[in-house]
Computed example of a mutant assay.
Amino acid sequence: MPSSTNPTLRQRRLGAELRKLREQAGLTSSAAAEQLGVKQAQISSIESGRYAVSADRVRTFARAYHCADQALVEALTAMTGGRTRGWWDEYRDHLPVGLVDLAELEHYAAELRVALVIHIPALLQTTDHARALFRGVFPPLQQYEIEHRLTHRIKRQGILHRETPTPYTATIHEAALRMGYGGRDVAVTQLRHILDMSELPHVTVRVVPFGRESFHGTGQGIDYVAGAVRQLDTVQLDTHHGCEFLDGEAQLGKYRAVIDHMEANALDPDDSRDLIRRIAHDL
C-alpha cells in the first residue's frame, strides 16, 4: 500500500485507533509485528497514518488484538484504502491544514452538533457574512486569502444540501445573533438565512436567550462530529491558533456534556425561530 508523508486527519485517526487496539491487547509494537508477520517499522508507519492499510489488513489486526467490537472494526475498515481525493484537497496549498482537515471530517460525519456564543455557525453563514468576518481577521488577510477561505467555507456547506444530508444541530447564543457583522443589511439577510435553513428537516437551530442563569457555555466554538460509532467521534474547537481536534474519551465526554447543557438551556426550535425574527426586526 502507498505511503504518505502528509497523512490526512482521517488517516491519522485510523492509525491512532489501531494503536489503541494494540495497546488494549497489551502488545508492544515489536510483539505485534512479530505476531502479524510484518516489520515493526511498518506497524509504526500504519499507526502514524503514513502507510495506507487495506480493509482486510484492519480485520487481521483486529483479530490479532482480540477486538470483539464488530461495529468498531467495520467502521475502521470504512476508513481504509488508498488516498481518495476530495474537493478539500485543492485547498491544501492555500489554507491552514486544520481547515482542510475539518472539511474532510465534516464530509464523513454521521451527525454534527455545534455550539457557539459569539459567532454564527460556519455552515449557516451567508457569503456576505463570512466575507465580513474574514475581512476582520487579525493580522489582516490578503484579498486572495479571503477568497480562498470564503469558497472553502461555502463548499463545506454542501453536506447540508447533498442527496443524503448530514443531520445538523446548531445551538447559538443570542449574543451571536446580535453581533451585526457586515452592517444591518448583511446581518438581517444572515438571520433570514438561518430561519430558512432551520426549516430543513435535517437542520435544527436552537437559541440560548440572554438571561439564562445556569448557562455554562464556552467562548470558543465547539463542533461535535459524530463518527460511525461513538469511539470515532471528534471534537473540533475554534482557537486563536487555529483548529484543535480532540478525540480522547474524557475529552469527548466533557464536550458532549457542554453541548447537552447548552441545548437544555436553549429555546425549542419554534421559539428559537420567533426570537430570531424579533432580532431581525430590531436590527
Rank of each mutant, 00 (worst) to 15 (best):
G82H: 06
Q190S: 06
H66K: 15
V97L: 11
G182M: 12
A250G: 12
T84S: 15
A250S: 14
F215C: 13
T166I: 08
E47G: 12
D260L: 08
S54N: 10
F215M: 14
M1S: 10
A175D: 09
A109L: 03
D223L: 12
H129P: 04
A41C: 04
V137W: 00
Y91C: 01
S198T: 15
R149C: 11
T218I: 13
T164P: 01
S48F: 08
A228F: 00
A115F: 10
T189V: 07
E163P: 08
M197S: 05
Q251T: 02
T84K: 14
Y91L: 00
I259F: 07
V38Y: 08
T234S: 08
E34Q: 10
A130D: 02
P96T: 05
A71K: 07
A78D: 14
V38C: 11
H161T: 10
M262D: 02
D282Q: 03
Y144E: 15
H173Q: 15
Q70Y: 12
D238I: 03
T60F: 01
P167E: 14
H152C: 05
S272K: 04
Q190Y: 05
F245W: 14
R156M: 06
K254I: 12
G158F: 00
E249M: 06
T60C: 05
R113L: 13
H241T: 13
T151V: 10
R85P: 05
M197I: 08
G158T: 02
C243V: 08
A68C: 07
H152D: 03
T151G: 02
D185N: 10
V53T: 09
Y91T: 00
Y255F: 07
Q157H: 00
R206I: 03
R13L: 12
G211H: 09
P201A: 14
E163F: 10
D247Y: 14
I146P: 04
D69L: 12
G182L: 10
D196Q: 12
D282R: 00
V100G: 09
L124G: 06
D238V: 05
S30F: 13
M179N: 07
Q40T: 15
Q70W: 13
A31P: 01
A62I: 11
Y51K: 11
